[in-house]
Amino acid sequence: MWVYLERDGDKRLKDVGLELLGKARELAQKLGNSEVGGVIVAGSEEMAREAIYHGADKVVIIDNPDLKTYTPMEYAEAIAQVVQKYKPEIFLIGATKRGRELAAYIANTLTTGITADCTALEVDPKTRDLLQIRPTFGGTQLATIRTPQRRPQMASVRPGVFPKPQRDTSRTGEIIVERVEIPTRRTRLVSIEKRIERDIADLPPVESADVVVAGGRGLGSAEGFKLLIDLAKLLNGTVGASLMAVRAGWAPHTRQIGQTGKTIRPRLYIAVGISGAIQHLMGITEAKTIVAINPDPHAPIMENADYAVVGDYKQILPALIEELRRLKNQR
């Protein structure tokens, strides 16, 4: 049971790898305590120790100075070589943008199958098959996929699907440094730069926030988002938007929620001036609690909410903000 541990720059690992170590640990127990391993490309011992604290028994650091910078084909080749050598039954990859880029190439090199974007993983102790469960058709269906004939069985999982395990500094494990040779480079990084995106507020991205307050066409103007931002800040959350609000230019597309935007799983979702079209609902089906604020009691979002607040947001939001401020001052 092995996991690809993607680096987050030169200093640390991305959370998704640690999340997968937690899941791998759980599945390994069900298979009679099989080993949990991790692979880091051009990482440090400190990163490997972090992986061990989060559930790994063994961590391989691929040591090749040529792999300091990421390029897809070369990384995929190197990872595939290590997987080939250690022969795990199961190999999991975090479906970040880079992870999605690497995953299928690695699987192909290992002549095995791979299931994309699983939201649940189980094992069948009898066949030792990994049950790879993924939503399809815009979240309306759940498919269970197996890879009965080939090993390793591979799956990718989006960040945030599984909880990050507790960090336990008493855990010990083995750190192995592998010198992996790669074929002559055919992809070279020329430059890398952070994009300065004009955002409406200095708030976290929608996919990582516990509380998301989203606005739609019903806000009527960009001005309306100011109230949403105030509310989001009070709730330690962030703001999101419907496609129509993005089209109107009131929010950047990175904040769009739904079928062609982000799928989110916050503890609290507040939809303001959003009608609740199916394409929008697809992005929030896994929100724990949904609040809708809309003057139209028959808007689909109201049928799909835990709390359907009938009214004009221009009246409801200031009252709600005042109430929350009062609560905060009490505590």
């Binding site: 002549t111 095995t112 199958g113 791979i114 299931t115 049950l131 790879q132 939503p135 399809t136 979240g139 309306t140 269906q141 759940l142 498919a143 269970t144 996929i145 197996r146 890879t147 009965p148 004939q149 080939r150 089906t285 896994e286 724990k288 949904i290 009691p297 109201m302 049928e303 799909n304 909410a305 835990d306 709390y307 359907a308 607040v309 009938v310 009214g311 009246q315 409801i316 200031p318 009252a319 005042e322 109430e323």
Partner: peptide
Amino acid sequence: PTVVAGMAPAVYPPRKKIVLQGESGEV
């Protein structure tokens, strides 16, 4: 190599659908 072993409609938690209406401070 991959085999679809099952397909089921995704079930999501049913919503409470509690309607709140009236004066905004009260709501």
